[in-house]
């Protein structure tokens, strides 16, 4: 078997183990989807940190969270909580919407540098 095969395998194995470096304390934020509206519609999160966004879909129908800005697409099953990992994001505004109800199910994530003092 040619040497480069071993090299590529080694590279992927190395990257896999790098991936296991799980972010120990990911900060959690919560959103609610009710009557096809995300609450709150504006959510502030810390910039440059990975965030765990938990969305509780209280509607009886599924929705699909979609955001080109955040590079995320996720099905929100009815009456269930769904987790979406986002970031680390640079400071700025990141829009998202629900694919089934884009007129009402819209919101924005605001990533900002938070001064702990």
């Amino acid at each position: 078997m040619p040497k480069y095969i071993y090299f590529h395998c080694l590279l992927f194995i190395s990257l896999f183990f790098m991936s296991q470096n799980i972010w120990a304390k990911t900060i959690e934020f919560h959103l609610i989807l009710e009557n096809h509206v995300f609450i709150p519609s504006e959510l502030k999160i810390p910039a440059y940190k990975k965030v765990k966004l938990i969305i509780h879909n209280k509607d009886n129908t599924a929705e699909e969270f979609d955001s080109f800005d955040l590079n995320r697409e996720k099905v929100l099953f009815p009456n269930k909580k769904t987790t979406i990992f986002i970031g680390p994001l640079s400071s700025g505004q990141y829009e998202y919407f629900g694919e089934y109800n884009p007129g009402s199910a819209r919101g924005v994530i605001i990533a900002e540098v938070i001064n702990v003092n």
Binding site: S19, I22, K50, I84
Partner: peptide
């Protein structure tokens, strides 16, 4: 899960 680890697989 997308975004959970350093990279997605």
């Amino acid at each position: 899960e997308q975004g959970e680890l350093w990279a997605d697989w």
